[in-house]
C-alpha cells in the first residue's frame, strides 16, 4: 500500500511540473513495465520504446492529466495501448495484434516463451529450447524469480520455503548446466 501511496505522490508532483518526480516514477516502474510488455510481445526494442513513449506522453500532457488512483495500472494500460498502436502501425504481427485486441482474456507469454522469442539468433534459440527442457521445473522457476522478476535470494527462499543457501545452490547448479548447454 505504502508503495502505491508514493506513486500517487510522485504522480501529483509530476502533474505540477516536477520533472524529477517523473524520473522517480520511471525508476520505480521501469522493470515492472518492461516485464509486462515483454509478456505481451517479446520484442525488447518495441517494449523499451513504448515505455519511454508513455513517459514522454504523460509529461507532455501533464497539465491535462487527472489524479490517478492506481498509477501502476494507469501506466500498464498506457503501455498496452502504446504497443498496440505501434504494432498496428508497423502491421508487424497480426497474431499479436489480434491477441491484444481481445483485451479481456489475452494470454500472457510464459517466461520460457519470452526467453526464446526474444532471441534473434536461431542457433541460440535452439540451444535455449534444449536447455529449458533439460533443466528441472524447479530450476526454471527459481531462474525466473531471480533473473526475470529480480527477486533477491532471501525473497526467493521465503517464497519457495527453502533456505537461502538451497535457493542459491539450486540456481548455481542450474547456471552451471545452462552454461554448458549454451556453449
Amino acid at each position: 500500500m505504502g508503495l502505491g501511496e508514493d506513486d500517487h505522490n510522485y504522480w501529483e508532483q509530476m502533474r505540477l511540473g516536477d520533472k524529477q518526480a517523473l524520473f522517480e516514477l520511471y525508476n520505480r516502474q521501469y522493470f515492472q513495465l518492461i516485464r509486462s510488455g515483454l509478456k505481451i510481445n517479446a520484442d525488447d526494442e518495441l517494449v523499451k520504446d513504448c515505455v519511454n513513449q508513455v513517459f514522454l506522453n504523460i509529461w507532455d500532457k501533464r497539465e491535462r492529466l487527472h489524479p490517478v488512483e492506481n498509477v501502476r495500472a494507469y501506466l500498464l494500460t498506457s503501455l498496452r495501448h502504446c504497443m498496440l498502436d505501434q504494432l498496428s502501425y508497423l502491421n508487424k504481427t497480426n497474431a499479436a495484434l489480434s491477441k491484444m485486441l481481445a483485451e479481456e482474456d489475452w494470454n500472457e507469454l510464459s517466461y520460457e516463451q519470452v526467453l526464446i522469442n526474444i532471441q534473434q539468433d536461431d542457433d541460440l534459440k535452439e540451444k535455449l529450447k534444449v536447455a529449458i527442457r533439460q533443466l528441472s521445473p524447479r530450476q526454471m522457476e527459481l531462474i525466473q524469480l531471480k533473473f526475470f522478476e529480480g527477486l533477491s535470494y532471501e525473497q526467493i527462499a521465503e517464497r519457495t520455503g527453502q533456505t537461502v543457501k538451497t535457493a542459491y545452490n539450486t540456481i548455481y547448479d542450474a547456471i552451471k548446466a545452462l552454461r554448458k548447454l549454451l556453449k
Binding site: 518492461i34 525488447d44 519470452v114
Partner: peptide, 26 residues
C-alpha cells in the same frame, strides 16, 4: 548469460538517459 535470462530488460540507466534526451528534444 545474465542478459539472456533477464530477457533483455535493458539497462534502466541507459533507458532513463534516452528518456531525458527525448524530453529535452521535445
Amino acid at each position: 548469460i545474465v542478459m539472456i535470462l533477464n530477457v533483455k530488460q535493458g539497462s534502466r540507466i541507459e533507458q532513463l538517459k534516452a528518456l531525458r534526451s527525448g524530453l529535452t528534444q521535445s
